[in-house]
């Protein structure tokens, strides 16, 4: 049986959470470690940190954030944002990350995916693919959706799987932030061409969207930020909803 994973994602800027859950009694709502602990207790299946720091100091802080999180939370951690070299991989893994996601750097240098998979194992190589529709074609974008590449989404997915990526984090830039649900057509099309796990991201506005991502899109995991951060829905609530729809999820006490 395949258990679908629910992965909350925390955006971290200069060592601080940008949009976080605001619970009463939380010592420091901007502290990524405090937020990670909350999601850990709530039954998240994995955690994802996306570093959106603009400065070198901010990037440096991220190592400390990962390190402190890994001391407190015994869950798989994925870290992404600005990862460019095998050395970045090495350092993040040494701090306690289990998976490292690459995006722009993989497009600039696809050899990075192969090298990281060979050195650290496919299981820790996640390739984030940001997709936007251009003239009816799914195109891969970098730099947060600002720069268009030559690649079509499904071709790039097959290429990274061939290079040794262990997982794809697929974000629809058309849907991101809209709350209108995953791009199910894109998800299902990618599911049909690669055998590695696909994490769906971008566009979740309600719990039915999570169910659709799995049942109609074939996602192995769902990543969401806003619906959890703003307290619209909790993780146990999401899991109950998915379980009632017939999806296998891990229920924690």
């Amino acid at each position: 049986m395949s258990m679908v994973r629910i992965i909350p994602c925390l955006d971290v800027k200069e060592g601080r959470v940008v949009k976080g859950v605001n619970f009463v009694g939380l010592r420091d709502a901007g502290d990524p470690v405090e937020q990670a602990k909350i999601y850990d207790q709530a039954g998240a299946d994995e955690l994802c940190f996306l570093d959106i720091s603009a400065t070198a100091e901010g990037k440096e802080t991220m190592y400390d954030v990962i390190s402190r999180t890994a001391e407190n939370v015994f869950l798989p951690l994925t870290v992404g944002g600005g990862v460019a070299t095998v050395e970045d991989y090495q350092r993040l893994l040494a701090c306690g990350a289990d998976k490292v996601s690459v995006n722009s750097a993989a497009l600039r240098n696809p050899g990075l995916v192969a090298e990281a998979a060979q050195r650290f194992g496919a299981q820790c190589v996640v390739v984030a693919i940001d997709v936007k529709t251009v003239d009816g074609v799914w195109k891969v974008f970098t730099h947060g959706g600002r720069r268009e590449t030559e690649w079509q989404a499904l071709d790039w997915a097959c290429e990274v799987a061939r290079l040794g990526a262990g997982e794809i984090l697929l974000t629809s830039m058309d849907r991101d932030g809209t709350g209108s649900g995953f791009d199910l057509e894109l998800l299902a099309a990618m599911r049909a061409v690669v055998h590695i796990p696909i994490v769906a991201s971008g566009g979740v506005g309600n719990l039915q969207h999570l169910v659709d991502g799995v049942q109609k899109g074939g996602a192995n995991a769902v990543l969401a930020a806003s619906i959890f951060h703003f307290g619209t829905h909790s993780i146990p609530e999401a899991k109950r909803y998915m379980a009632e729809a017939g999806i296998s999820v891990r229920i924690t006490l």
Partner: peptide, 11 residues
């Protein structure tokens, strides 16, 4: 029909 690697929770 199952993704490989297996990545996730199991009994």
């Amino acid at each position: 029909g199952l993704a490989i690697p297996r990545m996730g929770w199991g009994g």
